[in-house]
Design a protein around this nucleic acid. Structure first.
Lengths: 319, 319
DNA sequence: ATATTGAGGACAGATCCTGGCCTAAACCAT
DNA sequence: ATGGTTTAGGCCAGGATCTGTCCTCAATAT
């Protein structure tokens, strides 16, 4: 019955590729009689995929949205677009679907033909990183780790700790957690026989070792909460408070919500609060707003801006 | 044979959801005998989807990447993640896959169940807009128009021309073109009986009228080229040449290749060339390098940097 | 060495598929 | 209003396919 099944898939593919299909044309494409097409449509309906039909001239078949997702039949370019889209969503989005994006990406990359994979990574490396994005996570690392989590396979990687000290690790990955703009890996460190959290942008060349492990009970039910807690003893973090000379509304449109909060002061000024671990990005983020502003705190930011201003003035050269 | 076909799809779905599956477990899930599972695997292989198998304890089946994309079987969350990812990719990416992203998005949205669609638009509206992105295109508009292009259906919308004058249009859409960071619609304007290009971020509430039309011959073979030509009064584009006081090697690591080229001058300085349509972006990009530099050209960039420096100095407040 | 897991041939009975033919109903355009 | 076009679906007969069972063999991990 490989014949019928593959024909059904082809039919689905056709119906997904264009909206309206006359029965006769489908019969031609599938190289079967019109009667069989009608039966195939019936079968698809039986499978839960709602196929509408219109009689009369200009009639035909049309796949509608149903209660459940039908299998998506993608051509090469579309698969690439989805892979690239998921990669950017996984690292740049703010909507709280990052984990799901990575899961979908793993599913897709598992079956992505090699030549497409090459094209994706070619495009992926050309993908722009947000100007003020800080250290970027390699989507490749994310998918390798996520796949290892899913399949209970050990992972080896080089890690550069907060203090800059490098080490090689072999861990049993438990889950990937996205907090703020960062990715963390919660894993059981085999050498240290304990749970550790790793910042994904600090690890290099993660590779699945192929060794399977029996899943352990995580140190807490909610991995995300656990990671957040273990980061609460976080190091120096700059919290900025800045007065912007612009209406809150006009600024809000241009500031992604996770980049901080905007509170109106009056019709013409508002207060912007945001935090980061790096003064450079903090400075750029504020400067990029394109409006006049004043730093309330921290003093380090003022100092940093002054230095930046001097540098820019030097760069601009003589008047 | 709806039974066999749907079982094959379920099997594909299982194989996509996890990597390793023992035959016995598959048999249980599919409620068939182990022999039938082996036959189903054989069928999948016959369809071109490579299923690996390992014998012995800890053996099982595993779906590998093959030569062609298999149908993707997504759960609800994954479908949402893909939709959101494609929406952001379609409007924010710079990789040249925007058109394809929209096409894939149209395909997906055509079959996206209603409750998922609601979740996507809820998330989509919360999606961040790039800080200096200029006017943003509504992904919803893009998909409506792209679907209309694909299905040869007329579209009605309100348009605000370059001079700010509003009008209502009814057009036969031909193609969507992405140039730079903007989207354009090439369409036959029915009232004016001529081809027109519309900037998608300037049109409001596009809606498919349901009226089909017979595709016309476009005014040029390559729609993108045509649009580009008709925009030849294009926005001034800035090409920057900057001398960096840092070794080429150390800078290269921090500059994505498509952001420009780095050429060494001597051991301690190098030249950075890059271009953009927006001076803000250009300035930030260079400033973010974190090294001293001098602007060679264009003069506008120098002027811009001076202004930025003044603003930063003001922002930093008194010494 | 042994147990576990996949591979696959053979067989029999049941099931299902296909194409062809025919009638009904819906719909568009002249 | 009418005729042509398009989907809907019943019926039939011949042929192909599927499934479960039983069996033997090969590969692999403990």
């Amino acid at each position: 019955m490989t014949e019928t099944s593959s024909r059904l898939l082809t039919l689905l593919s056709l119906l997904q590729g264009r909206r309206d299909w006359p029965g006769g044309e489908l019969a031609g494409r599938l190289e079967v009689s019109g009667r069989t097409v009608r039966r195939d449509v019936e079968r698809l309906r039986g499978l839960g995929y709602p196929v509408e039909s219109l009689t009369g001239p200009a009639g035909g078949y049309r796949l509608r949205a149903g209660a459940a997702m039908p299998p998506l039949l993608l051509d090469d370019d579309e698969a690439i677009a989805i892979a690239v889209g998921l990669r950017t969503a996984a690292r740049a989005s703010v909507t709280g679907i990052e984990e799901t994006s990575v899961r979908a990406l793993v599913k897709l990359e598992q079956v992505l033909p090699a030549h497409l994979r090459r094209r994706v990574s070619a495009l992926g490396s050309a993908t722009m990183t947000l100007p003020a994005g800080g250290p970027t996570v390699d989507p490749q690392s994310l998918t390798v780790i996520a796949a290892a989590c899913r399949d209970s396979e050990c992972v080896r990687f080089a890690y550069r700790g907060r203090d800059g000290v490098g080490s090689r690790r072999e861990v049993e990955p438990h889950s990937l957690v996205n907090l703020g703009r960062r990715w963390y890996l919660l894993a059981w460190d085999r050498a240290r026989s304990d749970w550790r959290t790793f910042r994904v942008d600090r690890l290099a060349k993660p590779a699945s070792t192929g060794v399977r492990f029996a899943p352990r009970h995580p140190p807490a039910k909610d991995a995300a909460a656990y990671v957040a807690r273990s980061l609460s003893a976080a190091p120096s973090r700059y919290e900025a408070r800045v007065t912007l000379h612009a209406a809150a509304e006009s600024v809000r449109k241009r500031v992604p919500s996770h980049w901080g909060t905007i509170e109106p002061i009056d019709d013409r000024t508002c207060e912007y609060r945001t935090g980061d671990e790096n003064l450079d990005w903090l400075a750029v983020r504020v400067a990029m707003l394109g409006v006049d502003f004043e730093v309330c705190e921290p003093p380090e930011l003022s100092e940093h801006l002054r230095a930046l201003a001097r540098r820019l003035e030097r760069a601009a050269g003589p008047q």
